[in-house]
Amino acid sequence: MIDEEQTDFEERRTLSDFLREVPWWGVIVAGVGIYVLISMLTNVLYIEAFKAILPGIRITLEVTFLAYLLALILGLIAGMLRVSRNPVLYALGTLYVEVIRGLPMLVIILYAGFVIGPAIRDATHKVVDLPMLSRAIVGLGIGYGAYLAEVYRAGIESVHGGQMEAARSLGMSYLEAMRFVILPQAIRRVLPPLGNNFIALLKDTSLVSVVAIPDLLQMGRLFISRTFRAFEGYNSVAVLYLLMTFLLSALVRYVERRWRIP
């Protein structure tokens, strides 16, 4: 009798675990999504809109991944500066975070496109003349680097001081201890906010349309100004953004589970 109860209990627990881990609510979303997609794809107006807008996905994804990669690197450097005991390094990291975080992302992108980009071109006598796409990617990367710096810092500070002491007492240098002991733990802990920022960045890539980059939103707006079909145009843009963020969300989930410490 007791055994049976035990099994029953465990089964229920497993089911609950299963339901927590598998994004079953995705079925509902997928259901609605498929209904919308089918009704869209059987509608000539939507097919036209999709055809016009789809090429923008490639640019949006390219901007997202490259800018995030840059932000991960800049954020890591700035985050480590922010926990440095050297006052000059700390001030450098803080300056970057405070200034960049204090500017709207749109302003940063316009700066990168129309102020910094041309300045670099003129300073190097046209040797380094970044195309607008690269300028926008750099702008977004720098902008998000400031947020990620704070994410990294929070992660590093959450690792118990004894870890650094243990690593140092084994003869590792500060940077070796960071690399092999502190950061692997810190980064695992901040995977959820890192994923958050990844998804936020994907959405913010829509801002690069202001410097005339043919991303998803820009393609949508071009379609609309050509055909005056705002309803179908923006619906298509929204559906495509949602599809990408859902996929990214699943990727983040996967990475989190993969890296969990037993």
Binding site: G162, E165, A167, P184, Q185, R188, I261
Partner: peptide
Amino acid sequence: GMVFQSFNLFPH
């Protein structure tokens, strides 16, 4: 070598 009260093993 140093051994700590709280072990300080690397959990990852």
